[in-house]
Design a protein around this nucleic acid. Structure first.
Lengths: 168, 168
DNA sequence: TGAAAGAGGACTAAAATGGTTCTACTTTCT
DNA sequence: AGAAAGTAGAACCATTTTAGTCCTCTTTCA
């Protein structure tokens, strides 16, 4: 099965909702300095996305450790984006939650060949690596604004990549 | 984690090795009629790909049920490709083994909205569906010859594929 | 008829996933 | 200073998936 984990999916929701808040802040204050955005508490974010507080808090912590969010501790604290939303892409979010993506065992660039029983025999390895790179490339190209509500004002998501929609 | 299952990975190996055999047959006999290719037994295929026989047999059965392979029963029997290798793509192989790919819960076209607790609230849904389609599109474009040894003689992997054989 | 080979399931151990809980530790407000 | 609000971090557990095996039956060829 090729799929994105639920946690990563939730994380995308969270990031998207924070992106929206940031955009609102910008519209209100005419300022693009992200560090001035008032932080949103874990509870609020959980409510926004219909997630349980503990689960949401866990994801927020992970995203913070990955430097995608920054946190403000103490009363009145919370989270905000650590980067402009255009500098955050789907790949980063997924990797923050689930670790580096590896479409197949052998595709990792830091792969130790001795652990692969097929080693030199594995013909598909190079081909699969290309597949891996193409998927990775695709994920990097999808930035946060595309994933949030803002997409409505930013234009259609499906850009020039997908020329043919015959997939399935 | 976004990844392809080991079984699907093995299946690709198997399909690739059978594709190679078919290509060899064509070179030998100057015939492109795939149904004339002598079948390869599960044991042989397992050896070719360094897989255990039972596991390999299981995958072969699944691939046959998905109409990607055809089988010849009885003594001297085995498997061969059911289609020209250009008509088989990565998507088909993965779906044969793991079932329809669903990057996220909500992305399925046959999705019942009532089961989704987020329902109308889920903002990322449409965006995620686009992601899903892009990945699917990418997988469909990768055909069997690209995944087998033949790529060496057929040219670079990232070549002309978009123009020929619009899968399905 | 018997050996070779596929068909079809049932079954199991191990790992990943999804999620909770508990105990710190920090900051702010009063 | 002390309570409240909030993040940090890790341990923990149930369920599902994955990966792989095994057994029995049917078909075909010699």
């Amino acid at each position: 099965m090729i799929k994105i984990s639920k946690k990563a999916d939730y994380a995308v929701l969270i990031m998207a909702s924070l992106s929206t808040r940031q955009a609102e802040h910008e519209a209100r204050t005419q300022s693009t300095t992200i560090h001035e955005v008032e932080p949103t508490s874990a509870q609020e974010i959980a409510d926004d996305n219909r997630l349980s507080r503990p689960l949401c808090a866990n994801l927020l912590k992970t995203l913070t450790r990955a430097s995608l969010l920054e946190s403000v501790r103490g009363a009145g604290g919370g989270y905000r984006l650590a980067l402009p939303s255009f500098d955050i892409n789907l790949m980063q979010i997924i990797e923050a939650i689930d670790g580096p993506i590896r479409l197949v065992e052998c595709a990792g660039s830091d792969h130790d060949h001795s652990t692969c029983s097929l080693s030199d025999h594995c013909q598909s390895q190079s081909a699969m690596r290309i597949v891996h790179e193409r998927v990775a490339n695709l994920l990097v190209q999808i930035q946060l604004p595309e994933l949030s509500q803002q997409q409505a004002s930013t234009g259609p998501v499906s850009g020039h990549l997908t020329t043919l929609h015959d997939a399935k």
